[in-house]
Amino acid sequence: MVLTSPERAIDFCCAANMEKTKIGRRFEGKVAIVTASTQGIGFGIAERLGLEGAFVVISSRKQKNVDVAVEKLKAKGIEVLGVVCHVSNAQQRKTLISKTIEKYGKIDVVVSNAAVNPSVVAILQTQESVLDKLWEINVKAAILILQDAAPHLQKGSSVIFISSIAGYQPRSPLVMYGVTKTALLGLTKALASEMAPHTRVNCVAPGYVPTYFAELLMKDGDARKAIEEKTLLNKLGTTEDMAAATAFLASDDASYITGETIVVAGGIPSRL
């Protein structure tokens, strides 16, 4: 006999809703560190991992930005730890890792998202101090933070570098920035070999996404339209698009993928 009382209907609906909340919770009980994650693509990634069940550790250079981002994530029911970390500061990198271990005891996912673009001039006109800053934050810091995190990575862990479509064809005004993003493609291959078989290393290369970081490219309407027309989908990407690709690569759904880069750029040409 099938019960059709209002109480039974309510119980059924509640059970169905509970099942829906489990869908996509691929990071239940896992700990994920996302650098430069208080806004833009980094925040989107942290939010996605958190909504899928991860304990998320976010970071930024400014305490105020960290505090605001933490509150936003907590409001969505996400377990989050916020730490001030300028990735070029050795002590702050170590603090990021030590506070993560102190609170959660392990690391399952590292997403290296921090990057700068302090110059829009040609490579041969770029000052040495600017070259140093680009290298230090966009590439070197990504390696150093993994050196600190590696002893705590669990079997089956995952590392994701955030590169850029500019890494495939560096163009003005992102020429040297693009070169550093090209380096991350090689770093992905090298570390995938070095960290196998217990840790997978992959990369996401975003296309053009209207964030604060890309404001220079997006504030001009004609320039934005020209960028949109370069894509096969005739639109810009979103932070949610980048977060979805990152979450896939970090999850067990990608358990047989390592050393690869997913280009999330709406069809902008990148490679054969």
Rank of each mutant, 00 (worst) to 15 (best):
T35A: 02
W135Q: 07
C85S: 10
I45V: 01
V209M: 01
N65I: 07
A46V: 09
K22I: 07
T188N: 05
A226R: 14
I45M: 07
A192P: 11
S270M: 04
I227H: 07
I227F: 02
P6W: 04
L236G: 04
I97F: 04
E194P: 14
S157D: 11
A243Q: 14
Q91M: 12
I227M: 15
Q91K: 14
L249R: 11
A114E: 01
A244F: 03
S251N: 13
L187E: 15
K64W: 14
V111K: 04
V116E: 06
A243R: 00
K219V: 07
N117F: 06
E128L: 04
V57E: 01
G266P: 14
S119G: 12
I227N: 13
V139H: 05
K76Y: 05
A226E: 08
I143S: 08
L144M: 03
E229A: 12
K94S: 09
A247N: 08
R26L: 12
G50K: 01
F248M: 01
A150C: 14
T211L: 01
S163D: 12
S129A: 06
T211A: 12
S157H: 07
V130C: 03
A265Q: 15
Q127S: 15
A214Y: 03
L191V: 14
E102N: 01
Q147M: 09
A265V: 08
P269K: 08
A243I: 04
L174M: 13
P170K: 09
P151F: 15
T21K: 13
A90V: 06
T188F: 02
K62N: 12
F55I: 11
D220G: 03
G53T: 02
T211D: 06
N202V: 03
S119V: 04
M195T: 07
E128H: 11
I257F: 09
M176C: 00
Q169S: 09
F43H: 05
T246M: 00
Q127K: 13
E79K: 09
I165T: 05
C14Y: 09
N17Y: 12
T182Y: 03
C14P: 08
K20H: 11
V80M: 05
K230Q: 02
G156W: 09
P206Q: 11
C203R: 03
I58W: 00
K140W: 15
P197A: 14
E7Q: 05
P6N: 10
H198K: 13
S158P: 05
K94G: 04
L153K: 05
Y256R: 10
Q127G: 13
N17T: 12
G50M: 02
E136C: 13
T100D: 08
R25L: 15
T100E: 06
A36G: 04
A196G: 12
D148M: 08
D220C: 12
E19D: 10
A205Y: 03
R25M: 02
S157T: 06
E240K: 08
S60G: 10
S172I: 11
S163Q: 15
L191W: 08
A115H: 05
E228S: 12
K94F: 09
E71G: 15
N17A: 02
N17V: 11
S112D: 07
I262W: 10
V264W: 02
K99C: 01
P173R: 12
A122G: 15
